[in-house]
Design a protein around this nucleic acid. Structure first.
Lengths: 143, 143
DNA sequence: TATTGTTATACTCTATAACTATA
DNA sequence: TATAGTTATAGAGTATAACAATA
């Protein structure tokens, strides 16, 4: 048995492997002209659909003034649009523009390209392991 | 077949799962009083052993003045120590103190604890998938 | 002359506190 | 009175430019 058998060893192995790949994937970024909070905010809107500034701030674990600033920069670049809230006059609803969607797609494509090249070099068995692991990890994070 | 079969779909599935878990793991941090560059610098010293400020800046992909500042804050907190370079009078050699090592150990322990709890809830088959996937990912990142 | 490291200065992201508008 | 959002101001972290010390 060369592989870790106890849960604590498995935990270290999974954490190390995941963090290393995540670091590598983050490094393969497309549009360096967008800052980290900007990209993160766009990604959250893409994942959850239109949200109010307050909801966005909560998702990004950032205080409302910080989100005000990020949204102002994104609006200035035409990447998000604001609409009045249907029932509450204090709130706005922020949504992605089509050009923001294009940037997100391109960003993912670049990263997937790097990963896809490496996945293609693996054996079919290894790819199968990763395919099943991805499903397990999704459940694990969701729990 | 409910699972992705083409490499591009596998790529998206792996990337998404890995990035989500990485985000969750990063969130489980121990000492919030240490900033990200501070922790990153300590981790690099832990991984590579004593380094000069210039080498540290290169590893962290940061300019020398930024590393000067980070090292000053770490030195002030007693987490790194400087020694003169054996042959080059311009350079210093920076190394971890024992209290820095203790922080790093505690940091990892906390994150592994969270992950280990979730791993324990999985079926033995799922854990086996993750164990094998971790090995595959390590090879993939190294390639 | 080239390189290591620091200091000076400016820009970005973040936060808390104070303010306005709406519930 | 409480909440959403913004503005004012300050504190980190980063960068480039300029300087000191050493190779």
């Amino acid at each position: 048995m060369t592989s870790p058998t106890r849960t604590s060893e498995l935990s270290s192995a999974v954490r190390t492997a995941v963090m290393r790949l995540a670091r590598r994937l983050r490094y393969e970024r497309s549009d360096a002209s967008l800052s980290i909070p900007q990209v993160a905010t766009l990604a959250t809107l893409d994942r959850h659909g239109p949200l109010t500034p307050r909801a966005l701030a909560d998702h990004e674990k950032v205080q409302p003034p910080s989100m005000t600033r990020t949204l102002a920069s994104l609006e200035e670049r035409g990447l998000v649009a604001r609409a009045p809230h249907p029932t509450d006059g204090r709130q706005h609803v922020v949504s992605l523009t089509s050009s923001a969607r294009a940037i997100l797609v391109e960003d993912r494509r670049l990263r997937d390209e790097w990963l896809a090249r490496r996945l293609a070099e693996l054996s079919p068995e290894d790819r199968d392991v990763l395919r099943r692991a991805a499903a397990v990890l999704e459940r694990l994070v969701a729990s």
